[in-house]
Every structure is written in C-alpha cells, then in structure tokens.
Computed example of a mutant assay.
Amino acid sequence: MWRSIASNALTLFFVLLIAAAALVAWGRNEFVTPGPLADAICVQVERGASLAAVSRNLEERGAVSDARIFRIGAEYAEKSKDLKFGSYLIKPGASMSEVLAAITAGGQSTCGQEINFRIGVTTADVILRELDPATNAFVEVVKFSPGAGEVPAEYAKALESPDMRYRVTLAEGVTSWQVVQELKQADFLTGDIGDVPAEGSLAPDSYDVDKGADRTALIARMTEAQSRLLTQLWPNRSADLPYDTVEEALIMASIVEKETGIAAERRTVASVFINRLEQGMRLQTDPTVIYGVTGGKGALGRGLRQSELRRATPYNTYVIDGLPPTPIANPGRASIEAALNPEKTEYLFFVADGTGGHVFAKTLEEHNRNVEKWRKIEAERAAQGQPESGGSD
C-alpha cells in the first residue's frame, strides 16, 4: 500500500513538475512575443510608482496581456525596481520585454508634453508641444514670446503637470548676452546669473532641464559642452591654418556662423576668410562690424551706416588687420568644424545669390559682376515691397 502511495505521489510530482515547466515556458513565451496593443499609446510612469500599479495600468490599456506575467518577468530580469519617471511611447505589438525596456531604460521621455524654451538669434519663444503616439511627431499646442504679457492658459496649466518635461534650446549664432537675458524670462528656472559668459563659450544645443533648475548650473552645462566639443575637434584640425589657438579658431567659427545659415556653405565661407588672412587681406565682414556697434546686445535692426563701416573699433574688420579680439557669437559644431577644416579653394569674395545662399568668386572683377546681379535682385524685391536680405563680403 505504501509503495502504491509513494508511486502515485512520485507520478503526481512529475506531472506537477512538467506542468510547472510548461507554465514557465508559456510565461516566457508570453513575455517575449508580440503583445496585444493595436495602436501606439503614451504611458506615464509617475514618480515613486510601484511595479504593481504600472503593470495594472499597462494591462487596462491593452499594452500587456497579463499584469502578473509582466511583474514576474520584471522580477526575473531584475528590473522590478528600475522604473523611471516619465512618459514613454509604447508601439503597436510591443512585447512585454520591450515594454519593460521602455519604462526602465531612463533618459529622455519619448512621448507626452514638453515645454521648449527656444533662444533664437533675433528673438525667443516658448513652445508647449505634445508627441502624437500615432505619428510619433510633435504637435504644437501653444507658442508665445516670453515676457510679452499674460501667458496662455494652456501653458499655465502645463506648468502644474508633474510629468511635464522642460527643454532649453540655443540656436547657433546667439550671443552670450542674449542667452543670459532670455534665461531670465524662463519661469520654470530659478536663481540669478552673475557675469555674462565669455562670447563663444556656450554650446548651441538642446538641453533637458528639471523644473526649478538653477540658471547658473545650466550656463555651466553649456560652457562645459562647448569646451568638450573644442577639445574633441581641435586635434583633428587642418595642419596649415593661419591661426594657432583654439580661441582664434572659435573667433573664425563665429564669423562663419553669422555669415551663413546654410550648412553646405560653411566650409567654403571659412575658406574665403582663411584665404584673405593668408594673403594679408582684411576680412571685411559686416557681422563683426555689427558686433562692434551692438556689443552683442541684440540685433542691430537696420543696415550698417557708412560712418560705422569707417569707424575704428576692435571689431571693424574693414579697418583692422586679422581677426577681431573675441568671437562675435556662440558658434555651433558645424561652424567650428568648418573653421578647423575649411574647404580648399581660391575664393576671396562672396555675395548673396537671391536664394538664401551665396555665390563665390576668385577675383574682384568676377565678384563685382556677381554684386551687380545681386543688386538687380534687391531692386526687384524692393519694387515688390520685399525686405532686403543678405549682402556681400
């Protein structure tokens, strides 16, 4: 009898063992196979949220087939305590494994709303935008100028959201004074800024920040980013440049940045100014003269006067030889690369071509012909009431 009981118990044990193994195999398969989600969704992980709460939310929204299996899989992968605050895009058919990776990887949120404080060359604006899960593209909710009056209701409400993301974006060519002045208008930042950072020392880029972040700490991040970039690019510079220091290269990069906004032209523009330096010619570039007039404190808002072109200032490259004493803006990576590795050309002149770009010339005679074409374009635009744009160097 006892032998029969033992035999039956052993049989039952093996059956249960096989069933358990089958259950584990099924669970593993459920964890890695495509999930039930038909359309992309945006999942929010709140600060301090538990895995149980997040898994129930995922099941209710159809992102996972079984919250228990999701939790077990997270425990098995040793990621149950790695939930990261933010909003995450879950794509159609994402497996539980992929969902877990999305909400535990950290870094920038991949969906939801964000406030982007953009500092441009002539103005700043604030954009509240939302990522549409269906298209994976941002949709603008509201846009306004900071400090221009009462803020839109949508923005005021967004500031109260615990899941809101914040970003500060610097355009290439902004001056350090502009950055400081505009950051004072960012109402989600805190703290005062002391002295204006050295011109050219801030890296134009997009910076993720937390609500209440310190302005001075953000400036330090921008400075560190530019320093890191220069350290990376300087060793790979061309061997025959007419300047010997990082600061001089940064000055050249800032001039290139202000002369053209077209990426494909930057190395060619840099070659023009380098050719002039090598031949002992003056740079004769308007942006440096403008910086001498404004001190980098905003746009000039008009054309240069002849008296300003003749006035002796450290930045008037129609009067001085060589480079001005400092950068005239904060150049981006592409302009720094152009200053360090310019195109090899024989160009000495360039003028606007009417399309937003420039046409280049090797001789003054050729340049004068190009200028005449540009003046005709300007005259035609003036007759049509269009604003002037571009110029020659």
Results as ranks from 00 to 15, higher is better:
E182A: 07
E182T: 00
L183F: 08
K184C: 00
K184H: 10
K184Q: 14
Q185R: 09
Q185S: 09
A186G: 05
A186D: 00
D187K: 04
D187A: 01
D187I: 03
L189N: 01
L189T: 01
T190A: 14
T190K: 14
T190S: 15
G191V: 15
D192W: 02
D192F: 04
I193R: 03
I193E: 01
G194A: 11
D195Q: 11
D195H: 04
V196W: 01
V196T: 08
V196N: 06
V196F: 07
A198N: 03
E199H: 10
E199D: 09
G200A: 14
S201T: 00
L202S: 08
P204R: 02
D205C: 00
S206N: 09
Y207A: 07
V209K: 13
D210A: 15
D210L: 12
D210F: 07
D210N: 10
K211E: 10
G212Q: 06
A213D: 09
A213C: 06
A213M: 11
A213R: 04
D214I: 11
R215Y: 13
T216D: 12
T216H: 08
T216R: 11
T216L: 11
A217V: 08
A217W: 07
L218D: 03
L218V: 10
L218H: 00
L218T: 02
I219L: 13
A220N: 10
M222H: 03
M222N: 06
T223C: 04
E224L: 15
E224K: 15
E224I: 09
E224A: 14
A225C: 05
A225N: 15
A225E: 12
Q226S: 06
Q226T: 02
S227T: 10
S227C: 05
S227H: 08
L229Y: 04
L229C: 07
L229V: 14
L230D: 04
L230G: 09
